[in-house]
Write a protein that binds this DNA or RNA. Structure first.
Length: 431
RNA sequence: GGAGGGGUGGCAGAGCGGACGAAUGCGACGGUCUUGAAAACCGUUGAGGGGCAACUCUCCGGGGGUUCGAAUCCCCCCCCCUCCGCCA
């Protein structure tokens, strides 16, 4: 949620920043208009309340003195004011609710540093590590899609997953399941020097989804358990961001770093029919998320840190990749600036987005009412939130299997994974 | 799921229709005293909104209601505790 006060005092700058995303400014204009009338009516309401409060005090003292007639006259006067107060109070409640609802639909202001652009094609590649999609770098035995490798080695059983749960659900078996778990464990171990590990709930209340910006605008993308009005989380970002909801953090505890491995659930409603094969787009997957609460001045450095941490895992796994600076048109709703890491998977010949590292400025924290107090100072400030996928299993699994496939059909495991494989250093078909 | 008890400031805890944004204690902060510290004593100490300001409004788990006036009375909901039931 962007700050109404900025809309009030700095409208042109807010409008200009939002315009960089493309899309309409209609809601912003509506908020501005509502806010003006809200303050006007609120002022009038408070004025009347103040009178009612004063009169009521008088009634009290008159009654104590036994001056009943005078007290009753005052009561009548107050009653009349009360009717007017009720009208105005209903009006402010209504306008306030409408304002908040509009505000919840307006995306975050992009950072000045985010590149301009309308589509994903305008994203800026800031570096590339390894050969990427250079065809000459890849041998024929690496040009096999992971679903074929998975079947051949008996480590991926999509057919039976579909039998249990329908299309776009997956099942790993044997060394495939171990690989899935090992990737998560690696990501957790890799960040345990600075991040507290959390095992949050995977099913949450509506308010928890609103805090991150996943509701109300993107309800169709999430699984909703209607009977209990609970939502299956699309990412651990959702519960982790609400960990400090409605709390005031001590400045000294910032930045606060958290990480969690959870299942993530996505309906993928808008992308039916795309990437249906294999692991590229699935309804349920495991992911290790890293997240931080920060003071504003700490945010830039933390953003770089989260990106470096996510990227170093990809590097350690021996995957070729590129880092993109998302343009304003491709930026997620809640984000002010986002770096994506894309891995090149030679078997499917595609760049796969495996991590998205975002700085949300105070947008989520204002929704979630997460504040902090600087040591020795009065008052509170809205915190900043940042997060990124440390490692999202299915796409990394696919890229690892395709990249490290050997001429004999086996998959050679990257060294960082060896500790998790009970002495094995490769995956071979059993026969 | 059933029965009972409870949710008040950073914490503990009083208040149960009017002088209550809330006693008291603890904690924290500032001061006096002290070479320094402790103790003692004095003072300060919740959050948010509107207003240039004076000032003013809101918040006692959440939402409705009664009343001139609600932390206090009524209704609904949520959460916590104890017991019973069920259960990995």
């Amino acid at each position: 949620m962007i700050d109404v006060r900025r809309i009030r005092t700095d409208y042109d700058a807010v409008a200009a920043a939002l315009a960089r995303r493309g899309g309409s400014l209609e809601e912003l204009e509506q908020v501005r208009a509502l806010d003006v009338s809200l303050r006007e009516i609120t002022g009038e309401r408070d004025q009347i309340r103040s009178e009612v409060n004063a009169i009521s005090k008088e009634v009290g003292s008159l009654r104590r003195d036994g001056r009943t007639d005078e007290a009753e006259a005052k009561q009548a006067q107050s009653r009349a004011l009360g009717d007017r107060e009720k009208e105005l109070a209903d009006l402010t409640d209504d306008i306030g609710a409408r304002t908040r609802d509009l505000l919840l639909h307006i995306p975050n202001l992009p950072s000045d540093d985010a590149p301009d652009g309308a589509h994903a094609e305008d994203n800026v590649e800031i570096r590339r590590v390894g050969p990427g999609d250079d065809a000459s770098a890849w041998a024929d035995h690496q040009r096999v899609p992971h679903w074929d490798i998975g079947t051949e080695l008996g480590i991926l059983d999509l057919e039976r997953a579909v039998k249990m749960s329908g299309a776009m659900f997956t099942m790993f078996r044997g060394a495939g399941a171990t690989l899935s778990r090992a990737l998560c464990q690696l990501a957790l171990d890799h960040n345990s020097d600075a991040f507290e590990e959390v095992r949050p709930p995977t099913v949450v209340l509506t308010d928890t989804m609103i805090s991150t910006g996943h509701l109300p605008k993107f309800a169709d993308d999430a699984y909703h358990l209607e009977r209990d009005d609970l939502w299956a989380i699309p990412t651990a970002e959702v519960p982790l961001t609400s960990l400090a909801r409605d709390e005031i953090l001590e400045g000294a505890e910032l930045p606060m770093r958290l990480m969690a491995q959870t299942a993530c659930f996505r309906r993928e409603a808008g992308s039916a029919g795309r990437d249906t094969r294999g692991l590229l787009r699935v309804h349920e997957f495991d992911k290790v998320e890293i997240l931080a609460y920060a003071a504003p001045e700490q945010a830039a450095e933390l953003h770089a840190e989260l990106l470096a941490r996510a990227e170093s895992l990809i590097t350690a796994l021996g995957l070729t990749h590129r880092v993109l600076d998302l343009c304003t048109g491709d930026l997620g709703n809640s984000s002010a600036r986002t770096f994506d890491i894309e891995v090149y998977a030679p078997g499917v010949d595609q760049w796969l987005e495996v991590s998205s590292v975002s700085w949300f400025s105070d947008y989520q924290a204002r929704r979630a009412n997460i504040r902090f107090r600087r040591a020795g100072e009065k008052g509170t400030e809205i915190a900043h939130t940042l997060n990124g996928s440390a490692l999202a299993v299915p796409r990394v699994w696919a890229a690892v299997v395709e990249t490290h496939r050997q001429a004999d059909g086996s998959v050679k495991l990257p060294e960082v994974l060896h500790p998790y494989f009970r002495g094995n250093t490769e995956i071979r078909a059993k026969n």
